[in-house]
Amino acid sequence: MTVIAYLLYGDNQMYERELVFSLLSMLRFLKDQNESDSSLSISVISDREREILTHLPTPLPIEQLIVSQGELDGWMRGGAYRHGVKPCALMKALDVYQESVILIDTDTYFVETPLRLIERVSSTSSVMHRFEYWIQDEPMWQPIVERVGDGIELHGITVSRQSPMYNSGVLGVDYSQRSLLDRVFELLSTLYDWSPIFNVEQFAAGVTLHQWTNLLTSDDIVKHYWGYEREFVHSQINRSLMNAKTPFNELMHHPATFAVGYPRQPIKDRLVSKVRGAMQGWNDRYRFAYLSYRTALFYASKDREYANIWATIALEEARMAVGVLDGGSGSGSGSGSGGGSSGAFENNTEFDRVGLSLQRDFEQFQPEAIGSLDWLSGEVKQRWLQFWEQAASG
């Protein structure tokens, strides 16, 4: 038996909707499953009973494993590190069920049957979502890279500049490997004290399981969304779950319910962005900002919500491309831009030239024009106006 578990705590209703959507995406593959011969069970680890789960018709029961606020605070190192809850929640589930447990983030959905996923966990193998990078290649990890060099041992785990980073959107181990989770928590605590990097928990899990088990990946089975894509998926989840007239028990039978992700960008706009970018020496980030701007205009008369999301993406990417940062709005990490050097032009054109280009390239979002766009929300308009002020001030 394998337990597929989710962790949900706090009052953010969108996380609860993510959970329901992920469960439905999984259960659609099991709608004909016979409960008596099932090879898996489902558990939601939460800080309280979730009423929506008691009303969710499923072919398998969903158990709710309640944890106290004190436990959560301990897992988060007194609130200092929120992501520390994941390995601790996995330990809790392993202790309770004494079976293989696969902990899955709520911001996921299944594209293949979960029966393929549970096959990847055994007494000798573990599973995470996907390989991401070697820590020596990631700038934010340089403080730890400099400290570990070619290799040091911490809590029985060798950490070096060549250590791998795996994504922990999926994290599964067999009960026989329970003791490895203690090492994971000890390692993340030590590394976090050295440098408080936000994803230190997933590094600690990945490097430990990579050394002590046959670590497999699961991105062919589970889709994990983040960055800009998250905004679109949230919109699509809301449309499927909150606005749908179809009952929950029928949603599992509707493939369209699970058609989520980036909305299409017109071929014409992609071609124009590519050609203009090549002719004018734009880097990837600025080119993606311009493409997002054109895509926002494309959706303006078709889908205002999508249009506003694309307009926000254009703003975030333009900010980062030309170095005009928004102190409170976030950086839009995980964008589809492919990154790029700071500054919009590869030849380091002076900033006043960049300013003129911004006004030309984002013409309909200029201060003189943006007020007439009735499809654009007041919040997005205000943020674009603030951007123009900051760009003008240099």
Results as ranks from 00 to 15, higher is better:
282 W>R: 14
239 R>M: 13
221 I>V: 12
320 M>E: 14
214 N>Q: 15
278 A>I: 11
236 Q>E: 13
245 K>Y: 08
300 A>I: 04
301 S>P: 03
325 L>P: 03
267 I>C: 08
319 R>G: 05
214 N>I: 02
298 F>C: 07
328 G>S: 15
263 P>Q: 10
269 D>R: 09
274 K>G: 12
316 E>P: 01
255 P>Y: 11
232 F>C: 03
306 Y>N: 15
229 E>V: 06
307 A>V: 01
241 L>H: 11
327 G>Q: 14
237 I>V: 14
268 K>Y: 03
302 K>T: 11
311 A>R: 03
280 Q>Y: 04
233 V>L: 09
239 R>L: 13
212 W>C: 13
257 T>N: 08
268 K>P: 01
307 A>F: 02
235 S>N: 10
292 S>I: 10
231 E>C: 07
275 V>L: 15
304 R>N: 13
293 Y>L: 05
225 Y>P: 02
320 M>S: 14
298 F>W: 15
238 N>L: 07
211 Q>P: 14
320 M>Y: 15
218 S>T: 07
294 R>C: 09
263 P>I: 12
224 H>I: 00
328 G>V: 08
237 I>Y: 08
267 I>G: 10
231 E>P: 02
275 V>I: 15
295 T>L: 03
237 I>N: 12
228 Y>V: 07
328 G>Y: 12
311 A>M: 14
289 A>D: 08
225 Y>V: 04
251 L>F: 02
260 V>H: 02
279 M>W: 07
277 G>Y: 00
268 K>T: 12
289 A>P: 09
221 I>P: 01
221 I>H: 02
295 T>M: 07
311 A>K: 11
